[in-house]
Write a protein that binds this DNA or RNA. Structure first.
Length: 961
DNA sequence: CCTGGGCG
DNA sequence: CGCCCAGG
């Protein structure tokens, strides 16, 4: 009442939640610790002070106070012994920072408020309400969402500013929208239901954010929910009933108590002029030169503008050319913030509409002069992890040209380096400027689908070194069967919609522009945003992966595999196009001949390739295959291989059609298609390996798919003759695991008979045949072996009698018998299969040797077909996935060995259990045993079943087998 | 069981 | 989009 602020229309009181702000500052800098020359980590002090200064300068409060939690136990501990029990001890760096922070607050002549037995939020809440009554506009400065319950018309939350942009002020409307509630008080009902892990508030089990909102929307309060427990269903009802007490207590714990016995003495909180001498001394000691310059009159070094403003760039801030006491290039206004926990990131609330670039504070900088690039590089080299992205003219790796590079190491602040695409020499020069960064072994490089960027850079002669972190692969391990493109990830995990590429270059089609057609100033935001979002995703995914126990798989397998695949794709496989053309003509000869024969048999000409026409000709007109006719789901005649081969014995036309199909398939899919994909510059095809599509962990290959080149039939194998070494000095070397999946099965099940067979190096299919058909090994004939082989594969696939019968062309009954005998002979295999299913039922996922998961949420389905299918997956996924784990490890080890030994042999293909190399002839003798060794020892199976690898070489891929 | 591509 | 078929 004593203050005479008649000039100000409204008195503005700021109450700072000190610990919350300090912790936030500390963790914001923890990835890029800021250490001064005395070795002190000054991140927390700097972040806090920046926040304070910013609010003083921007918001010009009339009154201000800083609240600390009291060191003593609070009434909440008496209420609930576990309260905040699991909260870790204060980091040492914060302990050291605290005295400095207190001195700085005193230097600003700002009172420190605390009350024994109460927490900062209680103190702030009490003071805020008292101040409101006295006509103040109150801002509670905190990142903590619990304060939302206190918001009124005159009491708001002030979320700390970010990177010098406007801070976020949360008013009543914000709070209601964010929690999807009607009254502000309901915040505590939400918090009481969902709990808060960081404060160890238990909540009610099974109720998270989503459910809490729905329930409160329906019932209004925790009390009313409990009163209406009978309206709930199933597990939820059970939980609410059993944990009603706990829910009420949680609500109580989440409630901020506004009755702290404390007087509001406005005159003590009046903002005063700072004690410049004290502050100067402190800033000096801490080496906060920028801050001193900004806060103290005439003190500290002046910021000198540097560089020329780029056309289109906002002339708001100019970079410093030397690395000073800030972690960012333009960091003089940097305020600690970030998305360390995903949910509290500046990209905002976990629900509600997706934010877009225009909704968030950001600073994206154009770095388009030699000086700016030099400055950027010097900052890059000081980082320990940087996210980067390349912008190119297209997605085709062989023809795409670089348009620009973006970099980001602090959320919200990124840098874009455009390159003059039309001047290749200049582009090369700029790319090379950044070599010291790309080749820095100590900097972790983060990217989304970083293989693409690596391959692009490889085309400019840059080999990226240092650890990699690919957010696409990170998410592939978290949710293997979801999509992993960046836009979806940003929406799901950051609640943010990035600028879409179509907004920039227009919709798909002829008129679509490329990135090179867009002015760099417009590409800048898009490019920077990509790097920024990727960095933030990394910060979300890393802790998730750690919790799931998948961080090792990512860091030891998936991420290190990226450069290996990039290299494989870059090298490519040489195709003998001439041989292909010749073979095409030869095939065409056969095909024409077959056509005339088929038309002769049918008595008419028709499109043999159309299942519809074919069905009509065969079954209506020719009226063949009585009793064997089947229809597909869509009502058409089935004309698949299975049907046709049954008809083939009596009807020559069926056999001809089968052969026709085979040959036309060979022609269209391989012989005609492959030469089209040969890169003219080097005569090779460059497939792309997708590392994040299969549910089991395998790779897949596209454009072209080099993992399904024919081998089983005579005419198909011919195609492999066109896969040749790069020149006369090279040969193709193929290294195959023999029966990896069966060996894994033997090992996992611990079946003594099977393990023995592998230990003795026996032919596993013969040995299985001998057991299943109960004949001595030397009496197994080729038919028995063939059947046994199918059974063995069936086992890996989680066998069904139905499937087996179809495969070997025997009756269901016979198949069932074979399976029964098999399980009698290999009881541990049966046991293993049962255990796999049971384990999957419990966990709802299956896992490989390296803990790779495949979620099997349908394994408890009541739909028997669906459940059966999922059960087979429960058996197959760990086996197929472990085989994938093994060969991935082998690839990484071989790649590094070849590099270390400076060998010229290159890995050029992976086909699930086979690696193909373009091998220098003189190196073959040296590398063969080593490749064998690295493949067989890539991963050791738990029970020690040995892996075996066969190596062959030749003038083409066929010979190499 | 796991894939990708061509065709109608 | 379903079918068919190439590979593992």
């Amino acid at each position: 009442m004593t203050d005479t602020a008649a000039a100000a229309p409204k008195k503005k009181l700021f109450l700072l939640d000190a610990f919350a702000l300090i912790y936030r500052s500390h963790f914001a800098f923890s990835k890029n610790p800021r250490i001064n020359s005395k070795g002190m980590n000054t991140g927390a002090v700097l972040g806090f002070t920046n926040t304070l200064v910013e609010v003083l300068q921007k918001e010009k409060p009339t009154h201000i106070g800083v609240c600390f939690d009291s060191a003593k136990k609070t009434f909440r501990h008496e209420q609930y012994a576990e309260y905040k029990a699991q909260r870790q001890a204060m980091p040492e760096d914060i302990g050291i920072a605290l005295p400095y922070i207190k001195k700085i607050i005193e230097g600003f002549h700002i009172p420190i408020l605390k009350m024994d037995g109460y927490e900062a939020d209680d103190v702030i809440g009490t003071l805020a309400q008292k101040a409101e009554k006295e006509g103040f506009e109150v801002f509670m400065m905190t990142p903590d969402k619990d304060y939302c319950q206190l918001v009124t018309e005159n009491i708001k939350i002030y979320r700390p500013a970010f990177m010098g942009n406007a801070a976020e002020i949360l008013d009543v409307a914000h709070v209601l929208a964010r929690f999807e509630i009607e009254r502000v008080e309901q915040v505590i009902d939400i918090l009481g239901l969902q709990g808060d892990a960081s404060d160890n508030i238990p909540g009610i089990p099974g109720i998270g954010e989503k459910t809490a909102k729905t329930l409160i929307q329906k019932y209004g309060s925790v009390e009313n929910l409990i009163a209406n427990t009978d309206q709930l269903k199933g597990k939820q009802q059970e939980n609410v009933r059993n944990f009603a007490e706990q829910g009420l207590m949680s609500k109580e714990l989440a409630t901020i108590h506004v009755n702290v016995p404390l007087d509001f003495e406005a005159d003590k909180l009046v903002l005063d002029a700072p004690d410049e001498a004290t502050l100067r001394e402190l800033f000096e000691e801490l080496e906060f030169r920028q801050l001193a310059a900004r806060v103290l009159s005439g003190g500290g070094p002046q910021r000198t503008p540097a560089g020329v403003a780029a056309p289109g760039s906002k002339p708001t801030r100019r970079p410093k050319l030397v690395a000073g006491d800030q972690a960012t290039l333009f960091g003089d206004a940097a305020v600690a913030s970030g998305a360390e926990e995903g949910e509290t990131g500046h990209y905002g609330a976990p629900s509600g509409p997706r934010k877009r670039l225009e909704d968030v504070p950001y600073q994206y900088h154009m770095m388009d002069t030699p000086e700016l690039r030099k400055s950027l590089l010097s900052f890059l080299l000081q980082q320990t992890e940087v996210s980067f992205d390349t912008e190119t003219t297209g997605l085709d790796i062989m023809t795409a040209r670089l348009v620009g590079l973006s970099f980001c190491w602090l959320p919200g602040e990124a840098y874009y380096v455009p390159v003059p695409t039309e001047d290749p020499a200049a582009v090369q020069g700029i790319v090379e400027e950044f070599c010291p960064f790309f080749e820095a072994a100590h900097i972790l490089k983060i990217g989304q689908n970083i293989k693409y960027d690596l391959t692009i850079l490889r085309h400019y002669g840059v080999e990226v070194s240092g650890q990699l972190f690919d957010t696409m692969l990170a998410h592939y391990l978290i949710e293997p069967d979801m999509r992993h493109n960046m836009d979806v990830l940003a929406e799901t995990y950051l609640h943010y919609s990035p600028v879409s590429i179509t907004e920039l270059i227009g919709p798909k089609g002829k008129k679509q522009k490329t990135m090179a057609d867009i002015p760099p100033a417009e590409v800048k935001d898009y490019a920077c945003e990509d790097a920024d979002v990727t960095l933030q995703l990394k910060h979300v995914f890393e802790p998730m992966l750690r919790d799931l126990g998948l961080l090792g798989l990512l860091n030891d397998v998936e991420n290190p595999l990226v450069p290996v695949l990039s290299s494989i794709e870059y090298e490519g496989v040489r195709i003998d196009s001439e041989a292909m053309t010749e073979y095409s003509a030869e095939l065409q000869g056969y095909i024409t001949e077959l056509e005339t024969q088929i038309f002769r048999e049918a008595g008419q000409e028709f499109n043999i390739g159309s299942p519809k026409q074919l069905g009509e000709v065969l079954f209506d007109k020719m009226d063949i295959g009585k009793g064997k006719i089947k229809k597909t789901k869509t009502g058409q005649y089935a004309t698949g291989e299975e049907i046709l081969s049954q008809l083939a014995t009596d009807n020559p036309i069926a056999a001809l059609i089968l052969e026709y199909r085979q040959l036309t398939k060979l022609r269209s899919t391989y012989v005609e298609a492959l030469p089209q994909l040969v890169n003219e510059a080097d005569g090779r095809v460059h497939t792309s390996f997708n590392q994040a599509v299969t549910a089991t962990g395998r790779l897949s290959s596209t454009n072209p798919n080099l993992q399904n080149i024919p081998i089983r039939t005579e005419k198909g194998r011919e195609i492999r003759k066109a896969f040749v070494p790069r020149d006369d000095q090279h040969v193709l070397l193929a290294a195959d695991y023999s029966q990896v999946e069966l060996r894994i099965m033997a090992d996992f099940s611990g079946d003594a008979t099977m393990i023995e067979a592998f230990r003795l190096g026996q032919d596993i299919h013969n040995s299985t045949a001998s057991k299943v058909f109960k004949v001595p090994l030397d009496q197994v004939d080729s038919e028995m072996r063939r059947k046994a082989k199918t059974v063995n594969f069936g086992i890996i696939y989680g066998i069904s009698a139905f499937g087996l019968a179809q495969r070997i062309g025997i009756s269901r009954k016979e198949a069932t018998e074979i399976i029964e005998t098999y399980f009698q002979e290999f009881p541990s295999v049966k046991q293993f299969m049962d255990e796999s299913i049971n384990r999957a039922r419990e966990l709802e996922y299956a896992e490989t040797l390296l803990k790779r998961r495949r979620y099997l949420r349908d394994i408890n389905s009541r739909n028997a077909t669906l459940r059966g299918y999922t059960e087979r997956n429960a058996i197959n996924a760990p086996i197929q996935g472990t085989a994938a784990d093994i060969i991935k490890m082998a690839m990484i080890n071989i790649y590094h060995w070849l590099r270390e030994e400076k060998l010229q042999t290159r890995m050029i293909l992976q086909v699930h259990d086979e690696l193909v190399f373009d091998a220098v002839q003189e190196e073959v003798a040296y590398i063969t045993p080593k490749i064998k060794e690295l493949m067989t020892t890539a991963l050791l199976l738990p029970r020690g079943v040995p892996l075996e690898v066969e190596v062959g070489t030749g003038r083409n891929w066929l010979q190499a087998h």
